[in-house]
């Protein structure tokens, strides 16, 4: 029983979420034994392999270095995973847009189910996962020979980086006639990544327009926070889609979450209600967000935000 973890990387760096997926894998091998291998697929990923090799608990890093993996397209990545999967009892990836794109494809090619967004390992074959926007938690047991799982990384503490696992190349499957990469528009930000930030401050429709999101900047600077948004703010074009927090956006669980001008729809709560401390700023004292907020401040955000920046 060994586990293959699909490593995630962006811009030449290993994504922090990979260390949390390895943590989930460790909980599985703790109960069943076996090794954890990392699969790193991409183009010119040598330096990332060195970062990956440091993750505690990893037995080896298997590297598929080829142009066909450069943009992490699902079709060639799934084919690669299919070629390797027979050596493993579990394949894990983060429930990022890459993991969600690739792992169901792998599962179907292996004729097994896929478990999405696992947030607790009960045993090697039994897991907990959120359903209905996190308003219920299902315990599911799989008797498939191969378990294909995406992991909610905010639910697992990252492993340390004191290892030096061997790095090995794997034979690559290079053919992809189905899809080609055309281009991408990536949001540039100096701020921490939403998924891993200690503090998140999010704006909603109440922000009024995109320019007003600058009111969050000074506060985010002082707190080292990532900036998020509700769906309404993204739909209205205030900010880009990568900032959406919620059932169908990013899941965050920071030490401190500050919701500004956000009403608190269940779909938004699904993405942030596991935060340690929640602050809500809203002019409607009956906004549902106050039902989950540890500290609520009723008032006009345009008055409160500058004051808050001052007070920090």
């Amino acid at each position: 029983m060994s586990i293959l973890v699909l490593a995630e990387h962006h811009d030449g760096h290993l994504a922090g979420s990979t260390a949390s997926v390895v943590a989930a894998a460790r909980q599985i091998v703790d109960s069943s034994g076996g090794d954890i291998d990392l699969l790193l697929a991409g183009e010119d990923v040598g330096a990332i392999a060195e970062q990956a090799a440091r993750l505690d608990g990893v037995a080896r890093v298997r590297v598929a270095d080829h142009a066909v993996y450069a943009h992490q397209l699902a079709e060639p990545l799934a084919d690669l995973l299919v070629a390797l999967a027979d050596d493993y009892s579990h394949v894990l990836a983060s429930s990022s847009t890459i993991g969600k794109n690739v792992l169901p494809r792998l599962a179907a090619l292996k004729d097994v189910a896929q478990l999405s967004d696992v947030l607790d390992v009960v045993s090697a074959d039994t897991f907990k996962r959120p359903i209905y926007a996190g308003n219920a938690i299902a315990t599911v047991q799989s008797s498939d020979a191969l378990k294909v799982i995406t992991v909610r990384t905010t639910a697992f503490d990252a492993v340390g980086e004191n290892n030096s696992a061997p790095v090995e190349a794997v034979a690559t499957v290079a053919d992809n006639a189905l899809s080609t990469f055309v281009g991408e528009e990536l949001a540039q930000s100096e701020r921490p990544e939403l998924g891993g930030a200690q503090v998140v401050i999010s704006g909603g429709r109440g922000m009024g327009n995109g320019e007003n999101f600058q009111l969050l900047d000074g506060i985010a600077d002082k707190l080292g926070a990532a900036i998020g948004a509700s769906r309404a703010a993204v739909d209205a074009g205030f900010v880009s889609n990568d900032m959406q927090v919620g059932q169908t956006g990013k899941i965050v669980a920071p030490e401190l979450y500050i919701a500004v001008g956000i009403s608190g729809a269940i779909q938004h709560l699904a993405g942030m209600k596991d935060s340690k401390v929640i602050v809500a700023i809203n002019k409607d004292d009956e906004a549902p967000i106050f039902q989950v907020a540890d500290y609520g401040l009723v008032g006009d955000l345009f008055q409160i935000l500058p004051e808050l920046e001052q007070a920090l």
Binding site: V112, A113, I137, A138, D144, K273, V292, Y295, I304, A311
Partner: peptide
């Protein structure tokens, strides 16, 4: 299906906190 639903629970409810009066 080879996956069975063992049980479904309600997640721990978050208790609402307090309202503060000022920044």
């Amino acid at each position: 299906s080879w996956v069975s639903l063992v049980q479904v629970e309600t997640p721990a409810e978050r208790k609402g906190g307090i309202k503060v009066g000022s920044v």
